[in-house]
Design a protein around this nucleic acid. Structure first.
Lengths: 184, 184
DNA sequence: GTCTATACGAAGATAGAC
DNA sequence: GTCTATCTTCGTATAGAC
């Protein structure tokens, strides 16, 4: 089933994790926010909250990778702009109340399994960006890709704290200027 | 009293917030970790957990500002190196299990008051760095200072997820190269 | 697959003795 | 200032009916 109950629960978990953090998000809230049947959470996620969070991490990771589709042959500046655009859109659409679910889980994770899962997502973003940047002729794709991921994550946090796009836009401007400097 | 019970509680809260997040840190853990008398938490913090967290945010903010002391007249590269060094030291000393308490509070904050407090800390870091960078002759101190704060925060998160210094060091290398490029 | 009811534990907060 | 005891709320998880 494409739009099944399970998928709605996972999507809701991603949204709530990004807004309220790991321990700040309860099953009850996920059910309420998604209008999902109350009795079926442990049917879909017998492993409990950890299993739901794991699925949410994977989904959040895939969503971002999907947001980078169609960039083969793009310049480093275009890649940078697209990636930054994904995060800016999250801030705009949530009125700067949402952040990154993967980051939220990382800072509150209590098991190595959960940390591993988050690390895998971050790593997939870095790898995908580095591949695109290298293909676009960037001379040091790995350090720049890592900085792009790290700075975006941090910039989203700063903007959430201030409830303003100003910090994010300052960081984005700096990174874009860097990417535009590259002449392949 | 300089090393009083109240101060020990606040320092413990900073450490635990940086490791376990906001809702992941309980009063009981703070008391246990600091060997602090059980019955006196509401004596020192009648406003409850929110008041303790607020004090922890202020302390964490001041600690970092203090870490930037003695940099008047320093070059942008020296300022950048010092700031990055503060965060790298946190990762090393905690075996990559600790992060930034202010970030942890921001992503799980449930009140605007708490968000304001975190924003004030981030802003103080940005302002202090921008002032130092400007004094050192950096041509665009504000965007670079903001990127320095954001990228450091994100890099610490990436390194915690991977339990490795590699992501942090990649970001640090990129930022340091940027700062060294500046010729005043 | 979905429901209700309930057990169990954790955490914040308060009251009152010492 | 510090203590213990307790209230209350909330969240996870399980059991068993429909």
């Amino acid at each position: 089933m494409v739009d099944g109950v399970r998928e709605r629960m996972i999507d809701g978990a991603v949204r709530l994790l990004a807004r309220q953090g790991l321990q700040g998000t309860s099953f009850a809230e996920v059910l309420q926010a998604t209008g999902t049947p109350r009795g079926s959470i442990y049917h879909h996620f017998p492993g409990g909250k950890d299993q739901l969070v794991a699925a949410a991490l994977d989904t959040a990771g895939d969503d971002t990778i999907r947001g980078l589709a169609g960039l083969t042959g793009a310049s480093p500046a275009q890649v940078t702009e697209r990636y930054l655009g994904l995060w800016r859109e999250l801030l705009v659409q949530s009125d700067t109340t949402a952040g990154c679910a993967v980051l939220a889980v990382t800072v509150a994770a209590r098991s190595d399994d959960m940390l591993d899962r988050a690390a895998t997502v971050f790593r997939s973003w870095r790898d995908q960006l580095a591949t695109l940047l290298a293909a676009g002729g960037h001379p040091s794709p790995v350090p720049f890709a890592t900085t792009l991921v790290a700075a975006s994550e941090g910039a989203v946090v700063l903007s959430r704290a201030e409830r303003s796009l100003e910090p994010f836009d300052a960081v984005a401007a700096f990174l874009l200027a860097e990417a535009r400097d590259i002449r392949p």
